[in-house]
Amino acid sequence: MGNQKNRLQRSFSNLNIWIPYMILAIILIIMGIYQPGVINFNWLNRQADAWVTLALAGIGQTLVFMIGGTDLSVGGVISFTNCLAAVYMPQSVPGILAFSLGILLIGVLAGAFNGFIIVKFRLQPFIATLTTWAIWSGAALCILSVDGGKVPSLFTKALLHKFGSVKVSLLLLAALIVIGIFFKASRLGIALVSVGSNEKGAYFGGISVTRTKILVYMISGLLAAASGLFRTAQVASGSPTAGDSFILLSCASAVIGGCSVATGYYSFAGAIVGAVIMRLLTGLMVATGVSSYMTSLLQGVILILAVCLSSFTALFHNRKKMEVDV
């Protein structure tokens, strides 16, 4: 009897894992019905640019969610790196390379700072990263008070380059899925799940909680900076508010991607699919003729529904552990 119940529970968590893929299939089918023949390889190539920026931020957010935190500063870091790249990027090839590396380094440092203040001063993650969001977006506004700036065409070409008929963004997405498989099996990939599910237990199990947390925030910062670079190349200009929409969207893509602290499940592929779903919503609304003013309403509703769904899984687990439901 107990065995059967267990199996039922496992299939429930499995359902959670498959939900993003099912939603994606439904959206694609609806788009296919309303606009037949639109979805093909070229479409995929064009869309991948929009997907990759959000997917990078979403993966970072997924990892941070898994250690029981939130990273609101992705918005600030994306705005800041975008403005920095749009204003100060040099023209020469070595200059561009060095500058891009420098920007990625800034992302890592920003993440390390988040991790440091959260671990050292025991601040709540969402409050601590809220302050760094304000700081980074303030810095972005100091560099560039209105949209503008000039991006070297070489940089734009490099990130929008096509190998044969496959774009860099599409290759990067594929690479991220593969990296994700290896990352989950790595030392850090396992440590972060144990820190997220039981911090004290992980500490007594010999895992350095401090190091794991700071590393995860560093990865999130790095991915946010990379997302800022891609955004710069695609739009070819800077905007001090570029990152603000990414906060809600990255949380949504992480949650829809099926990551859950309670079950200890996360995957890069899920986060990427979550990002794709959030980006396709706009296309879906255009296809079905819904007013584009509804976009932010729909994004909010979907985020909350997804969180409710994943918190039901957690409630299920708590009931098993006889936790008090407060």
Binding site: I247, V255, T295, L297, G300
Partner: peptide, 16 residues
């Protein structure tokens, strides 16, 4: 639902 996600989502819903 985490308060931050819920209220930020509500912000977005009200805006839309």
């Amino acid at each position: 639902v985490h308060p931050m996600i819920m209220t930020y989502g509500m912000n977005s819903i009200l805006m839309g």
